[in-house]
Design a protein around this nucleic acid. Structure first.
Lengths: 324, 324
DNA sequence: AGACTGGCAGCAATCGATTACACCTGCAAT
DNA sequence: ATTGCAGGTGTAATCGATTGCTGCCAGTCT
């Protein structure tokens, strides 16, 4: 592999000059031409490791997400990637599997690799950002925001979404609306449930705790929770499900139990993946995941560009609608 | 950020000793204890950039895939990641968007970043691996293998799969079986179509070219191709679709046209994502994507470990079945 | 003519960890 | 007592690119 030394020797100049040519600093045009010629002659590719060591940064953004198999997060990733790409950054995707330990490890890797910044969809509201913050490394929290840190964040209006989802079900005539939500220590799960709870209470529903199930944001968890609700003494006649995968599980259970989506109402957060094949008759709180990624990348790039100041929080509105 | 110098000073030893402790070389136990204590005291994390520069390698594997929003590739990624994780490697995911230019760029990044190895699902059979090969950097091709390079490869038995898919449709009683396949320069697309073509010819079908459509391996492409086939002078009564996303598009078009999956037979490569909601009555050639990833990672890790020799080719069998 | 300025190029330090080599100590063999 | 050896530690070179500082030269000003 050709190094900057080789190029310098080949062109008969110093390494400093080569470096300046490669980085657009002031160099007389004739030398620049000479250097560029030598560089392409030798197929010179600057070694990023060396550059990163010297400059104490890199052109890589780490994107840490809890579940790479959830289309919500892959859309998010696309958004981040597209924006980062435009700005000349590469994106490293890390999958934590909703596991705080893996997350911790990936944060360590990000630091040790000197990434330019981190976009994190936290595995838990107690995720530990202290090392990143202590390093003053740009961080943007997305979707879920760990407590106690002053970092930029982009989220949805989760509580409102939960309320709207519940409202849409009541308005469609269901009277006993339950809720299947995610792990108790995940912020989106808590907030969305809170929204549902508020509306359910307003509508005079009692014994709300009997109507809630906490699951794991995955298909099987949703299916299981739905089973439990159906088998409970006073089962609901409709349910708010706080993420897409659990929604699939819940619908699966319902259909398997011989219920139609008219008999039993379902409102779900996040689009069903591959909508063309999705069942009809489900209320969907549309979450613009890609937009979330784009926004987060914008924020992060600004910070990387040197912007300072306290953490900003952007809340994206989610739009509920009823799919026919 | 604490460096090895800080730790050395704090422990009253040389940096060499600290390095040796961190890397398990020979150091007396008492000094080792001292060093470990200082290291944790100062929260020392070895800088991977510096290590990588010095050692001329890193603990990162690059996984380059054409479409991060295709569940097939995210499963693959999971397989790679799980295995890499076990071996202490991190996985960097790069999305080429089926674009040879983006792919080229990511290969450049991989080289410049000194990754330990690359797993590549090529955007095209003409993808350029020469830089990787010239560097003697470990490479494993998955799913799709660019022509003309002697590298390890893991693929499916695509032609056989195509034949089996076609056979299953004929055996179910359909007589005019068409094919919707991917871009002409993608190997899997060509081979699967070839398998279909062989069987279709055996069954006495003529004018096969009228029954084939080349699309882009995406949902809309599949839908469009299906429309074209339905509108053709002599439309087929069944179709082999060579990837999962196009399968969704095709089914969508069929249902929209008022056809049932009994009237019009469909066989598809790769599982419908989120099977619980998938339509029934489709023949599926099951592709063990995760297994593909695990196998590729194994091969790559062996190469990284120093194994030499000519490229090996592993062909995973795919199992067709009919979903009821 | 002499002083000064600005533009450009090169030298060498630097980033942080690894490691070849030198060196030291203590102990055993001669 | 001297030599040899082994195990452990330190010194300093090294990886490749970036960049602060210095120096040179030509052109301008007085």
């Amino acid at each position: 592999m050709a190094t900057i030394q080789d190029v310098a020797a080949h062109a008969g100049v110093s390494t400093a000059t080569v470096s300046r040519v490669m980085n657009g600093a002031k160099v007389s045009e004739d030398l620049a031409v000479l250097v560029r010629h030598s560089a392409s002659e030798l197929k010179f590719v600057p070694n990023r490791t060396a550059r990163s060591l010297r400059r104490q940064n890199s052109e890589v953004i780490a994107l840490i997400i809890p579940d790479i198999e959830n289309p919500f997060f892959t859309s998010l990733a696309r958004g981040v990637e597209d924006r980062a790409q435009e700005a000349g950054f590469s994106v490293v995707l890390c999958n934590t599997d909703e596991d705080v330990v893996k997350e911790e490890r990936y944060i360590g890797v990000a630091i040790a690799e000197n990434v330019a910044g981190v976009i994190l969809a936290a595995a838990s509201s107690r995720s530990d950002l202290s090392r990143l913050v202590a390093q003053r490394r740009p961080v943007v929290a997305v979707d879920r925001v760990p407590h106690g840190y002053d970092v930029d964040a982009v989220t949805f209006s989760d509580a409102d979404g939960g309320a709207e989802a519940a409202t849409s079900l009541f308005d469609r005539g269901y009277t006993r609306v339950g809720c299947i939500t995610g792990p108790e220590d995940v912020e989106t799960a808590r907030l969305r449930e809170e929204g549902w709870r508020r509306v359910a209470a307003e509508r005079g529903l009692e014994g709300l705790d009997e109507l809630v199930r906490f699951a794991d944001y995955r298909v099987n968890g949703g299916a299981q929770a739905m089973k439990e609700l159906l088998d409970s003494p006073e089962p609901p006649d409709a349910v708010v499900v706080t993420n897409n995968l659990m929604g699939i599980g819940a619908v699966q259970t319902l259909l398997a139990a011989g219920l139609s989506l008219q008999q039993f109402g379902v409102a779900v957060f996040g689009d069903f993946p591959f909508a063309p094949l999705a069942p009809t008759g489900v209320s969907v709180v549309h979450l613009p995941a890609r937009q979330l990624g784009v926004t987060a990348a914008d924020l992060l790039l600004k910070r990387i560009g040197g912007e300072t100041g306290p953490g900003r929080r952007v809340v994206l509105k989610n739009e509920p609608f009823h799919r026919e």
